[in-house]
Nucleic acid binder design. Structure first.
Lengths: 363, 363
DNA sequence: TTGTACGCGTTATCAC
DNA sequence: GTGATAACGCGTACAA
């Protein structure tokens, strides 16, 4: 064990510092930003006082306050967030983590809504939103390192499947985390979700009430909670009505996947008069496939979608669908993380948004 | 002017530090991460030596090196990036700035490709990509502050229109910036673009060579360089062929906008036998509108799009289009910023990718 | 109300 | 090779 010894440190006034050798030739000439020390010197006060003025201005005389503010304006001073972060351990930024092979980012309206909703509540709290994409592999590890080493105050995770323990690793690190959509691999997580089971049940019940008797489903991937829950709701409604729930195929929540799944479903069960599709993206493909078989929607086959994030209203015919209030959910996730950062204790139990239907022409 | 005086500072060894009062009750209990000092103490060396081991391990004896590495492993030490950032003025992260009303993020494949391309080259340089969305307003200012205060090493900006001086402000701050697509409001910027004029000319020439004589265009917004250039190319080709270039309408690069623009175009110029559309998103709407009028593509009207970012191959009929090599461009922008960060001097002149056609069934 | 002194965790520059 | 120590720029007990 080594004791490093004793050092004598002299704090010099700003003007006295010899910064002669600071001709660093690295890229663009960014002239050194003014520091708090320079502000203090210019205002004729100590750094502590200058600092107080910046952080609220309490406990400071009007005289000193004005002197400091003048100096700040004159020098064009901006606090260095990195130094401030080191001292306070807060960054003023929150990450939106999207653990997806990023091809999906472009095609799925889900993420757009998450971004919209989250920025809403983060902006209100004056927090910077940082979108971090974590694909499996190196990108994944670097993202975890970035997120768990104090570069952000918290994270909102728009995850769906178990991503080689990304979710768990983030939570275990102690980083304040909120999930949009219930994660599969984290136990007591703070999350905001919608009632997927209830939504699917509602949609299926609607089909039943309107005379459909042979109702199939294009379900989602069963490694995603939404996929599981929406299938469950469909089954519950059918069994409650004493109808058979044997017409099931699985898609992957994409348009081509939905098309392929729908073809399988209709080939195996040509007698269907109603289809509940677990996402609008897939349902839009279902509409196309049904039409390609010369059958009419909704007259011959009623189609019910899920999500209502934009596509549903642009299909022909427009899709009846279950509303997935993603933007509101993300906004709630935002306020939730803001509260957590404010030290408000939060029970780690899901916030669940109720399901509602948007009725259009397809069912 | 105040001299702050003289302070005497004693550096104690790691073990001797009294951290008794560090029971901060803020949110989740994140146990303090081990510091370099603890590693050094555990390894029986100075911080300087421990630091050397971490940063390359040069100029260190094997003995010391192994001791430090053992200590690191045992304590689970991870360097604090914030402290490192403060000392080195480098963060290891690069921002992808998207100055858009974020509704577009979800519908435009352009951004997905930018993300893909950029992460490619940033990952290769082990840099963390941070997506920053800067909408006009408060979000805008906060983003500028975030980007210009040392929280990122550089920025790649996927901008299109003049965004109340966002581009200029970033460049003026001295932050290394690379633009994907030539910016309108910055003079000598580092940017990577494609030959939009040439692409539009190529497409129009193709239509002419294949017998079209009345060729209109659905142009893009004229406050965007791509919109301007693609219109120019169309005009150039027509005037070179001695054909009239009077059938022009303007869309906004979205599907509904393209539909509306196409309707106007066809209403004003019912005699068109060819249409050059400045983006595939709009062109897909053009296909629909032409079909709605009972005219056949390409027999009655040939349609040529621009971008080839996914939609073109899924329309009916598939679109002939100009290839916009966005992913390659973004990758190049990435290597460019990496080089700038490495201190390699870069002439601030545009890198321009040549235009190529993707021929399908619509023309 | 103000200033002093110390701490945040690293890197970098020196002497040895 | 190695260790002491001065930055990096700021927040904040504590004492006055």
């Amino acid at each position: 064990m080594t004791t490093e010894g004793t050092t004598v440190k002299v704090e010099a006034a700003a003007g006295a510092r010899t910064t002669a050798s600071s001709t660093i030739a690295r890229g663009a000439q960014r002239r050194a930003a003014p520091t708090l020390r320079q502000v203090a010197a210019a205002a004729g006060v100590s750094r502590a006082t200058a600092s107080r003025v910046i952080n609220g201005g309490h406990l400071v005389s009007d005289h000193a306050k004005q002197a400091v503010e003048a100096a700040i304006a004159e020098l064009g001073f901006t606090p260095n967030p990195v130094a401030r972060n080191l001292a306070t351990r807060r960054t003023g930024s929150v990450a939106l983590v999207v653990p997806e092979p990023n091809a999906r980012l472009l095609s799925d309206p889900f993420f757009g809504s998450v971004i919209n909703g989250l920025s809403l509540s983060l902006e209100a709290a004056d927090l910077q939103m940082l979108l971090v994409i974590a694909r499996p592999g190196r990108s994944h590890d670097r993202a975890v390192r970035y997120l768990t080493t104090g570069q952000v105050d918290g994270a909102v995770i728009a995850s769906h499947h178990r991503e080689d323990r990304l979710n768990a690793r983030l939570v275990e690190s102690g980083l304040p985390c909120v999930f949009v959509g219930r994660p599969l691999d984290v136990e007591d997580s703070h999350c905001v979700d919608m009632d997927n089971v209830g939504g699917a049940r509602l949609a299926t019940e609607y089909l039943i009430e309107h005379g459909r008797r042979r109702i199939g489903t294009v379900a989602g991937p069963q490694d995603m909670p939404a996929g599981v829950d929406r299938l469950t709701g469909w089954q519950e409604a059918l069994s409650a009505a004493g109808l058979s729930a044997d017409a099931v195929v699985h898609g992957d929540f994409t348009v081509p996947g939905g098309a392929e799944a729908t073809r399988r479903l209709l080939a195996e069960h040509p007698d269907l008069d109603g289809i509940f599709v677990a996402s609008d993206l897939m349902a839009s493909a279902t509409l196309t496939e049904v039409a390609a078989l010369g059958r009419r929607v909704p007259d011959d086959v009623a189609v019910f979608g899920f999500d209502d994030l934009g596509v549903a209203s642009t299909t022909t015919p427009p899709l009846s669908t279950v509303i997935h209030p993603v933007e509101a959910m993300a906004a709630r996730a935002g306020t939730m993380i803001v509260e957590m950062l404010s030290g408000i204790e939060h029970a780690a139990e899901p916030v669940v948004f109720p399901a509602r239907l948007a009725l259009r022409a397809s069912a």
